[in-house]
């Protein structure tokens, strides 16, 4: 019988991978989301339709399916990807599709008069987007982003299916050699919960740092 503390210590070896996958996929999500919302601003109808389809598809297909397409399917097309890259192209891009919608909603909350004021002062549209709209949009969308980042964390265990040695993978390996499944998965659950709470606290601190008096998030 392994003592609970030892189980925790063993699983903790996977924490770095879990955090790494979560961070990389979240950053990818933000990048993709911002790109989507910026491209929408071009108001090219064919591009907008493409973005709508992209958003719809990546929000409709389960992560597991997307991950398997990328990791197990792409090699038959001659593209071999690392587990992390496969997670980025599935979980990261899916998060991007969701974040694109979050940003779109937040962008609508920016006051039209401010944009009008900027235009009349002679700013061009990209300057307005970068200097006026994005800074406000990012603050408005904070709750939505926090929600998405924690979702990424909660879907990160799927990385085990492509062989990444994160927490769940460690737990499975450990259950293979002991008969303490309950304790092991309970420990895994607690570890994830701890990471979740720390992530929330960290994001809260970031939000407080960037908060502007009088501006409320959506």
């Amino acid at each position: 019988m392994l003592p609970f503390i030892e189980i925790l210590a063993t699983l903790a070896e996977g924490v770095a991978y879990t955090v790494w996958v979560t961070v990389v996929c979240s950053v990818t999500g933000v990048g993709v989301g911002l790109t989507v919302v910026a491209l929408r601003k071009l108001e090219i109808s064919s591009l907008t339709i493409f973005l709508d389809v992209f958003t719809y598809v990546f929000r409709a297909v389960p992560l597991l399916v997307m991950l398997f397409i990328v990791y197990f399917g792409f090699p038959s097309l001659g593209v071999k990807l690392s587990p992390l890259l496969a997670m980025v192209l599935s979980l990261g891009v899916i998060a991007g599709a969701y974040l694109g919608e979050v940003y779109r909603g937040a962008l609508q909350a920016v006051d039209d008069h401010e944009i009008l004021a900027a235009q009349s002062m002679g700013f061009n549209r990209w300057q307005i987007l970068l200097l006026i709209e994005f800074p406000q949009m990012l603050r408005f969308s904070f709750p939505g982003m926090v929600n998405e980042f924690t979702t990424v964390l909660k879907y990160s265990p799927f990385a085990y299916t492509v062989g990444m040695p994160e927490i769940t993978k460690q737990a499975m390996a450990l259950t293979g050699v002991t008969n303490q499944g309950i304790e092991i998965y309970l420990a895994a659950g607690l570890l994830y919960f701890a990471i979740y709470r720390i992530l929330l606290l960290a994001l809260q601190a970031v939000e407080n740092y960037w908060r502007i008096p009088g501006m409320k998030p959506l």
Partner: peptide, 22 residues
């Protein structure tokens, strides 16, 4: 808080792979 903060898959594994030991 706990169930929105913990991955679903861990809960499923806990019951499916863990409970048989009890």
């Amino acid at each position: 808080s706990f169930f929105t903060g913990m991955p679903l898959i861990v809960l499923l594994f806990l019951m499916y792979y863990g409970l048989p030991s009890w």
